[in-house]
Design a protein around this nucleic acid. Sequence first.
DNA 1: GCAAAATGGTAACTACGGTTAACATATTCG
DNA 2: CGAATATGTTAACCGTAGTTACCATTTTGC
Lengths: 204, 204
Amino acid sequence: MAEYDELESLISQGRKHGVRKRIILLQAARLFVEKGYADTGIDDIGAAVGVSGPAVYRHFPGKQAILLALIELSLERLREGTQAALVDQDREPQKALIALVDWFSRFSVENPDLTLVMQAELLGLPEQDRRRLKRQIRQLSEAWVGLLIEVRPELSDLAARIAVTSVMGMATSVLAARLSSDTRALSVHLRAQMLAVLHAPAEP
Amino acid sequence: MAEYDELESLISQGRKHGVRKRIILLQAARLFVEKGYADTGIDDIGAAVGVSGPAVYRHFPGKQAILLALIELSLERLREGTQAALVDQDREPQKALIALVDWFSRFSVENPDLTLVMQAELLGLPEQDRRRLKRQIRQLSEAWVGLLIEVRPELSDLAARIAVTSVMGMATSVLAARLSSDTRALSVHLRAQMLAVLHAPAEP
DNA sequence: GCAAAATGGTAACTACGGTTAACATATTCG
DNA sequence: CGAATATGTTAACCGTAGTTACCATTTTGC
């Protein structure tokens, strides 16, 4: 479910157990992306949820914990989506790669805040968490790289890594630029250009 | 001149007028990219220059001013490079576009800190400066968009904007990932994939 | 060579914001 | 119902880091 639909649905559910926590998370994502992690106060987050101030501490042990939970949520969604896109592709790397692009171009456009927070605010985390998460992100992209090399064995390892990194970067830069609110058009164009990168002629 | 070569050359020049200031700027860029603007203290910047603490205030009125000067320097270089790449192309948009990609793929790889700071830490600036700089960045990318539409009139405005934004995003994401220290290889691959994006088949 | 400007060091100030304390209300469930 | 738990509120705390004050030294230009 896209992040804004989820947020709306959660708010309508009143104050059930654990719901507040999820609302805080999604609103914090919005704020972090809009104003940056450093310039977003705990008070701001509370206000966005309709709960001024330190009430947030009832749900999270601190500001950093919110950011950490957010990025972990983001990673989790990415992992789920990647796996889901890979099943039922009859182990054909060509089909699998296209399925991945299909899914990711849609996911990133429909979940801009989650996607952007992960790559923009990793530095806000303490060394240790940052390392751990970076490793996990790398593992995720390695799946893409492996698939790409299967499809195009002529690519060097570096070339494949650059292509995959570029594909991720295209999504975040386009989202950050807020070029259009037409999510359908955005994801369609993104998809086309991601495929172009993955199929770009190799350089000697 | 690439940023690290410039830094080295400056340091060897001792303490001439205005030199210190430039050194502070470039070291600050390194730190901002490495640890983030928020987590880089004035003391850190001073230490990196061999001048502990508030001595930095002899050259800049404050921390934000350093960031501002950095992003403005970055923009200036981008403008210069864009212009330089466009002259002597006989007003052929096809050639001009390729010249732009040639130049930008090299520039971004040779000046990673300048390139990354501009897009990563814009949020650290006060509203007003941020707006102004964003506008200037947009103007810069509009030059690319105009050129691209000239070459490929079948592209919608949105499609062209997405392509150009993607090209910029590819550079920053690849630089941030630090995939290789072989700048030559990086820029060559980047170039190829940027061209692929700009020539990607349009979507209906 | 000397006055003036430039540059630097150390110590102290201060504001901001994350966090905690202390106290209140509402919800849940036996 | 009533105890326990969850959730909120306001006021106060306090560490950090950007900034300023003040004094020392070096560099520059007449």
